[in-house]
Design a protein around this nucleic acid. Sequence first.
DNA 1: TTTAATGGGACAAAAAACGTCCAACTAAAA
DNA 2: TTTTAGTTGGACGTTTTTTGTCCCATTAAA
Lengths: 342, 342
Amino acid sequence: MVSLSEAQQKLMPEMAGLLKKRYQILQTIKLEQPIGRRTLSSLSGATEREVRKETDLLRDQKMIIMEPPGMSVTSQGEEVLNALQSFMKELTGLTELELQLATMLGIAKVVILPQDSDEIPAVKSHIGKEAARILQTQFADHQKVAVTGGSTIAAISKELKEEKRFSDLMFIAARGGLGEDVLHQANTIASAFAEKTGGTFKTLYLPEHLSSEAYEMMMKEPVIKEMMDLYSQTDLVVHGIGNAEEMAERRKSSPEEVEKILTGGAISEAFGYYFDETGSVVYRIRTAGIQLNQVQQAPAVLAVAGGRSKAKAILSYFKNAPDRTILVTDEGAARRIMEITQ
Amino acid sequence: MVSLSEAQQKLMPEMAGLLKKRYQILQTIKLEQPIGRRTLSSLSGATEREVRKETDLLRDQKMIIMEPPGMSVTSQGEEVLNALQSFMKELTGLTELELQLATMLGIAKVVILPQDSDEIPAVKSHIGKEAARILQTQFADHQKVAVTGGSTIAAISKELKEEKRFSDLMFIAARGGLGEDVLHQANTIASAFAEKTGGTFKTLYLPEHLSSEAYEMMMKEPVIKEMMDLYSQTDLVVHGIGNAEEMAERRKSSPEEVEKILTGGAISEAFGYYFDETGSVVYRIRTAGIQLNQVQQAPAVLAVAGGRSKAKAILSYFKNAPDRTILVTDEGAARRIMEITQ
DNA sequence: TTTAATGGGACAAAAAACGTCCAACTAAAA
DNA sequence: TTTTAGTTGGACGTTTTTTGTCCCATTAAA
């Protein structure tokens, strides 16, 4: 038996391509609105004429409006976008790609959002929204949640639905300050998560770049010890994945550190650890925080990273990542990974 | 909430027209196969080039094959045709037309099959198939079935699935011979129905054109009386609808009869009765058979008639038809009826 | 006031679609 | 066996549509 949409595609083979093109344009408009014809054409790769033809059609169908500041999608357009979402994921092969990636990386599940956050920044909020959705389904089973820093994880907190009914939840900052700006620090993010969900949070404030002796001393302090205990009780870790170089720069590491990181062949970074091509730890930032083996023992892990430029880092990190991990990423990263590994 | 196919149509407005065109071509090929490009173009109304473009596409999609004797649909093509059947009925508005017609004619249900049996003879077998399908759903509840003659009803018997498990069924020839050829007589058809279903049948053989006295005499005969009793017990009537003129000619009626029929303004004919524009009986063939009021008291009635040329006759007959009637017809007749009545 | 974006108009060039033949072939009818 | 009517595939000039690329008036923000 052949299904309705299979039969339609058989009778109209040109449909698939057309649908993809128009859907992608409509989607991009939604992400970048208000946006003009020319900007759009440079973003989507199509020629100006082509974009114009399709947007004229979308306008005639009342799915977008054209105004001096640019084009925006109407509520009708949004409805169409929603109605087609999962169908398009199937049609463009994203669903298949998710499965391929999951087996290739050896993890539980991969969720891919369309487009590339490197090219279209607004895709980041889509990733955040999806990660937030998944996270909320986990809150019932997992109460002690460790969160790391970074703009990606910060984006999740912005997209969490505000319903303060999870008073049992505890968000734990996975690390002390790591040299990033305050907004993207684990401490800040843990409090943001707690704020949105109605849970509590624990922060970890420690000076950076301590001497060995001081570090050892601090570790024996009760406040710090309490955090360390919490880390081993963590049952859900939420973290991003970064490019080793970028992270080293952004954290204003010392020249010696950078030297160590780069000569070690570090490619990816996650919760303060730097990993090389084979997934081995090359360097570790000396700040108190969750340990790699604690992450690997956590019952659930949610990794979030998108953008074509993150492809190599993702591959590197997942060489030795816990197999329970769920990865939320985007089409740009996913397709690039497939390119790299052929 | 907007459905998947609504959203698709919104994003690809050209789809509807294309689908209709291609589906119709594929359908016509199936009905008339093997058929050539030119014959097909004259049938479907499209230009040769257009037909060629679409058939080339259908060939590339492996839905038809082109051979010296003409084009035929492949098994894949048939599957697609089946998968899209009800969707296309919706898309081309046939479903809506069915409802409109049912209320307009004041009957229980109308089933419309695509295309026009006047133009494409093979549509008759589609009508027969559908009527047979409906009939079979009624066999459980209705055991005494009166059947009339005519090629339309004969087509049903050909399409009945052969499963002899309805031993309780009794098919009753609705009339004696009416001057038609043997194959299309009620008697023959009743036996054919019984043959296919495993039921029994009752025939009525009477000379035609009896004098009044002889007629009265016959009516008192036990065999005839028995049939008359059966008619009043009938709980399902299956009949066709004819054009008055055509029927009068085909039955080789005497000049006086034809005179009477035509001056009376007869338009339609069913089970030996001739009806005028208002649905009143204008003339009645004097042969023993089911009475109009017996038909009108039957719990279920299945009327079958197709082709643009039958539109007027259908309208005429249904002016006073029992409201339990189910009509099976085709697009040609249905659209013509809407044209006539605006 | 300047600037950098917007949508819409215009138009020549290129491409595709179209209408219309013809030739070679085949299968059935005569 | 020959004829005939129907088939597909090829060809080609003409028409229509699509495409690439400008420019322009307008607008909103800097």
